[in-house]
Design a protein around this nucleic acid. Structure first.
Ligand SMILES: [Mn+2]
Ligand SMILES: [Mn+2]
Ligand SMILES: [Zn+2]
Ligand SMILES: [Zn+2]
Lengths: 151, 151
DNA sequence: TACTAAATAGTATTTACTCCTATTTGTCAA
DNA sequence: TTGACAAATAGGAGTAAATACTATTTAGTA
């Protein structure tokens, strides 16, 4: 079948589901069938799905699940460290007119984007694997966390 | 006055506006007062504004400007390289259940997010300037461009 | 000065969440 | 095993951001 790179196989998946169940209990979260289903669908793919994409998949198991549940669950997974959001997605688009070489730190709380410049980050060397396969238009070191005001 | 780090000063701003004007003509774009105003407002700040934030500022000069014009203009600036969108903004939120160390390449055309792993990117050393000032929760090397299918 | 394609204003629509509330369910303690 | 209760869910409403549409205006040019 469709046996791609980083997909979790069935045995692994069951083991990870058991671990996830413990993780939920430790975090004081209820182990609901919806939560399990969303978690498992996320692990079964390497396509980095959006909430909507997972919603469509989980609907096949729970036809009456709501998109809000999928969204809330994914945020919960992120909070307990069972999954994470891919950098570069979510939030409103922000613009920059500063064309000098520099990098950005984003505060996850107040959403400020703060410039900094660290020369070693200017010219990152890519592995041949990447530069041969893709047309890389942009390479960035991106930092995220709490700023001096929110820290 | 409020003379922050990377803000463009008035003399610089006028010079850059002249350059921008040429850049527009070279690209076959009309030099409209709205376009100039949006460009100048973007250069005057280091807060990495959203379209909405710039809209509020430009409205003081052109009270009847539409948000759509601001949005379109910013995308145009991005296309001709007069400005750019900050990484980590725009598009729907995407999730990842793969907790192993790895990095992402995003195709700007088909929006696919592709995993890769380059060990040197795993533990980026931050300058003291940053780690002292901020609580860094996440540091990533992020790549953007055209994938093998869209290239 | 007059023509034309490009750009804009204003509005409508779409997308991606986020919030709200009544109902259901997992957990725990009796 | 059952009952109480806080947590979670379904379904719908609300909101924010971006995009699409169309009539009107305007910059570039000839
Ligand atoms: Mn910047
Ligand atoms: Mn990944
Ligand atoms: Zn902050
Ligand atoms: Zn692609």
């Amino acid at each position: 079948m469709n046996n791609k790179n980083n997909k979790t196989n069935t045995i692994e998946l069951d083991e990870k589901t058991r671990q996830f169940t413990s993780q939920c209990r430790e975090a004081g979260l209820k182990v609901t069938p919806q939560r399990i289903a969303i978690y498992r669908e996320l692990l079964k793919t390497d396509e980095h799905p959006s909430a909507e994409m997972l919603y469509e998949k989980v609907k096949k198991i729970f036809p009456s699940i709501s998109l809000d549940t999928v969204n809330r669950t994914l945020l919960t997974l992120n909070e307990i460290g069972a999954a994470f959001t891919v950098v570069g997605s979510g939030d409103a688009r922000r613009f920059d007119g500063g064309l000098h070489e520099h990098q950005h730190f984003r505060c996850v709380k107040c959403k400020r984007i703060i410039d900094f410049h660290h020369k070693p980050f200017d010219n990152i060397k890519l592995p041949a694997e990447i530069s041969e396969k893709f047309t890389v238009l942009r390479k960035t070191v991106y930092l995220e966390g709490l700023c001096n005001l929110c820290g």
